[in-house]
Amino acid sequence: MKLSPATFRALAKGDKAADRVVPPTGFTARLTLFVAAAMAFLAVFALALSLAAGRLAASWGDELARASTVRISAPEGQMAAQTAAALRLLEQTTGVASARALSEAEQQALLEPWFGPDLPVASLPVPQLIEVIETEQGYDPAGLRLRLQAEVPGAVLDDHARWRKPLVAAAARLNLLGWVSALLIAATVGAMVTLAANAALAANAQVIAVLRLVGATDIYIARAFVRRFTLRALTGAAAGTALGIVAVLLMPAGSETAGFLTGLGFRDWHWLIPLLVPPLAAAVAFIATAVAARRVLGGLS
């Protein structure tokens, strides 16, 4: 059985007589449907996880990489002078696109989640933060650190690399794991359909012998089984995918203020990806049944 357009046309059109030659099997049919649905449901989640992890890795990699912070801890009287000196120094540094001291209100907003809204920031020895945005080329952190040390003794440069790198690596690994899960799910569907098809072929040995006796070619016999399992996998996977998409839609959305925690879901054209699950499941079932049928039929006289 080849994957030719004619085969697909024949599959889609169906042959009522050919469908009837294999006796209906209620229980295994329902099991195949169920497994296909369950696997499609899981596949939708694996894809959602993978895509969300990919988005995380991308956003942490791109957006955070270009920002760093200079923190100035100085006695109250010197704070303004040191901040101005640091800003001046940063503006002269190549690779720094802009540097801006955070206002008191902004600093308060940053601390609010930890200390509550009524914190009198002004009366506390809170360090001054300077937000540094890099150009695409970036700056040399070691050189900048040395110069800051020399000119602004209270300044500490934090380029975020320390905590950003493991997070990006973790997100990238999560992304990979998601795709590996999707592949494993596809392989499981293939294995399950192969087992079910082998069982069906064995259970219908008499049907195959009769068909062979009256002159049926292997393609005719195989098609009766292949069509059945392909349609089952397609139907089951469609149901499972629909349920999976509904479940993803019902997930609580990651709020914008949650910052780097992107919502577990699909964005924009990514919604098209889960729609590929049913046809892929059908293709896997088609190939698995065709291979199983060819092996079993080839062993007969």
Partner: peptide, 9 residues
């Protein structure tokens, strides 16, 4: 196998 099947007809 297919030739055998056709001869069965």
């Amino acid at each position: 196998r297919d030739a055998i099947a056709l001869s069965r007809r």
